[in-house]
Simulated scan of single mutants.
Amino acid sequence: MKIVVSRLDEFPPGERRIVRAGRRSIGVFRVGDRFYAINNHCPHMGGPLCLGRTKPWVSSAGPGEYEMAGEEALVACPWHGWEYDLETGQSFLGPGEPPARTYSVSVASHVEEGAVPADEVAPPRTAVKGGRRPGPYVTETYPVHVEDAYVVVETSPRPAQVPGPVGGAS
């Protein structure tokens, strides 16, 4: 099903619209010249996902250093702060993620054999995309395009990828 969101000239960059199609509620975001459509239902606890704040990806190379990507690419659910990539619908751990792991510290008069100096311990390699790990939730996204000067969301089921024959033809 095609849903007409608005005329292109009435949908400026940085804006969002929420449209309904039956029981479905979809948030459509214009980020620069790109459009994204995402389900307005947070998979975490059902909050109105598309009413949340948007922000760009932020990455850090170290304490006090950060770099922001140019355009907003994440939306945060206003209920609990879960953040979702507008393009893929993937959640990322950020607000609401488990607290940082803690370790016991003691003062010793000697260093035990086999101990590793702190500056030689490699950081964990679980970071993905902007220093964040993917979370457990993924929300549905929809293709958006401009058709005859109108912004249109396509909600028809996407064709399933059919695997090819294994081992060649018999």
Results as ranks from 00 to 15, higher is better:
59 S>G: 05
139 T>R: 07
63 P>G: 04
23 R>E: 13
80 H>Y: 07
75 V>I: 15
136 P>I: 07
75 V>N: 04
11 F>T: 01
97 E>M: 14
104 S>M: 11
127 A>P: 00
49 L>V: 03
50 C>R: 04
73 A>W: 05
45 M>K: 13
158 R>K: 15
85 D>Q: 08
108 A>R: 11
95 P>W: 10
34 R>L: 06
131 G>T: 01
64 G>H: 05
14 G>H: 02
110 H>W: 05
106 S>C: 12
138 V>A: 13
114 G>H: 10
60 S>A: 14
10 E>L: 07
123 P>N: 07
170 S>P: 12
54 T>M: 15
153 V>K: 02
52 G>L: 12
93 L>C: 05
49 L>S: 02
124 P>E: 08
99 P>R: 15
53 R>F: 05
5 V>C: 08
73 A>G: 04
167 G>F: 11
140 E>I: 06
141 T>H: 08
148 D>Y: 00
5 V>T: 06
3 I>A: 09
144 V>T: 03
92 F>K: 06
85 D>G: 06
160 A>F: 09
124 P>N: 08
164 G>Q: 12
166 V>E: 14
159 P>V: 11
114 G>A: 12
77 C>M: 11
2 K>T: 08
79 W>H: 09
5 V>F: 07
5 V>R: 03
116 V>S: 05
80 H>T: 08
45 M>Q: 13
71 E>S: 09
113 E>W: 08
70 G>A: 15
106 S>Q: 11
26 I>E: 01
148 D>T: 00
74 L>H: 04
22 G>K: 07
37 A>N: 01
143 P>A: 13
106 S>K: 13
43 P>T: 04
149 A>M: 02
111 V>T: 10
105 V>C: 11
161 Q>A: 14
18 I>A: 02
157 P>H: 05
95 P>M: 14
170 S>T: 05
153 V>L: 09
93 L>R: 12
9 D>C: 09
105 V>D: 02
170 S>V: 10
9 D>G: 02
13 P>D: 04
107 V>H: 02
162 V>N: 00
156 S>G: 10
84 Y>F: 15
66 Y>C: 14
16 R>L: 04
107 V>P: 00
118 A>D: 10
157 P>L: 12
124 P>S: 10
67 E>W: 07
155 T>E: 03
61 A>C: 04
61 A>D: 12
1 M>W: 04
50 C>Y: 04
124 P>K: 08
131 G>I: 01
160 A>R: 15
149 A>W: 00
137 Y>G: 05
114 G>I: 11
161 Q>F: 13
3 I>T: 12
78 P>N: 12
78 P>V: 13
153 V>I: 09
14 G>T: 02
14 G>C: 03
19 V>P: 01
102 T>G: 13
86 L>E: 03
81 G>R: 07
116 V>W: 09
26 I>S: 01
153 V>Y: 01
93 L>Y: 14
6 S>Q: 06
